Lab assay of single mutants.
Amino acid sequence: MEQATVKWFNAEKGFGFIERENGDDVFVHFSAIQGDGFKSLDEGQAVTFDVEEGQRGPQAANVQKA
């Protein structure tokens, strides 16, 4: 698992990007966020996640709020 920071997340559209420590951004979809209830992330929030290869490149999976 990697630890990184949420760059931005649009709760209405259900997706955003996580900024990795190496500077690369990773796409995150609300369905990858672990937990119950409304799944959203806040800008600047610390998260841990795995990286999977998606249809359009790397994307976050198993996202957990740190």
Score class of each variant (00 low, 15 high):
L41V: 04
E21T: 12
S31A: 06
A11E: 08
W8M: 02
Q45K: 03
D24R: 13
G14F: 03
F27R: 01
H29P: 03
E52G: 08
D42I: 15
A46I: 14
N10S: 12
Q59S: 07
N10I: 05
A46Y: 13
A32F: 05
A46C: 15
D42K: 15
I18Q: 03
Q34D: 07
Q59R: 12
D24T: 14
F49Q: 00
G37C: 10
G37V: 07
K7H: 07
A11R: 14
H29V: 04
N22Y: 11
D50M: 14
Q3C: 15
S31D: 02
E12H: 13
T5Y: 14
V47D: 01
T5L: 11
A11K: 15
R56E: 06
G23D: 07
P58L: 12
F9V: 00
F17E: 00
F17N: 00
A46Q: 12
A32Q: 08
D25G: 06
N10V: 04
E43N: 13
F17H: 00
Q45F: 05
Q34A: 11
F30P: 00
A11M: 10
D24Q: 13
S31M: 07
K13Q: 07
D50A: 12
I18V: 05
A61R: 12
V26D: 00
E43M: 14
E52V: 15
F9T: 00
K7N: 03
E43C: 14
N10K: 05
V28Y: 04
M1W: 11
D25R: 11
R20D: 04
A4E: 03
A61W: 06
G14V: 04
K39S: 06
F38K: 08
D50G: 09
V6R: 01
G35C: 11
A4S: 09
G37D: 06
D25A: 10
T48V: 10
A32T: 06
P58R: 10
Q45Y: 05
E12I: 13
F27T: 01
I18N: 01
Q45N: 06
P58E: 06
I33S: 02
D25M: 15
G23A: 09
G23T: 05
E19W: 14
L41R: 00
R20M: 09
V63F: 00
G35N: 07
V63D: 02
I33C: 07
A66L: 15
G14T: 03
D50H: 14
F49V: 03
Q3I: 14
D25Y: 12
E19D: 06
F38A: 07
L41H: 01
K65E: 06
Q45D: 13
D50K: 13
A32P: 00
R20E: 04
K39W: 06
A46T: 13
E12V: 13
G16N: 02
D50S: 14
E21S: 13
G35A: 09
P58G: 05
V51C: 09
F27M: 00
A4V: 03
H29G: 02
Q59D: 02
V6L: 04
D36P: 12
Q64P: 04
T48Y: 14
K13P: 01
V28N: 02
K65H: 09
K39Q: 09
H29Q: 04
Q3A: 12
Q64K: 12
G37R: 04
D50P: 02
A66K: 12
P58T: 09
Q34E: 09
K65Q: 09
D25C: 14
K39V: 07
D42N: 13
Q45V: 08
N10Y: 05
L41C: 06
A61K: 13
D25F: 12
G44P: 01
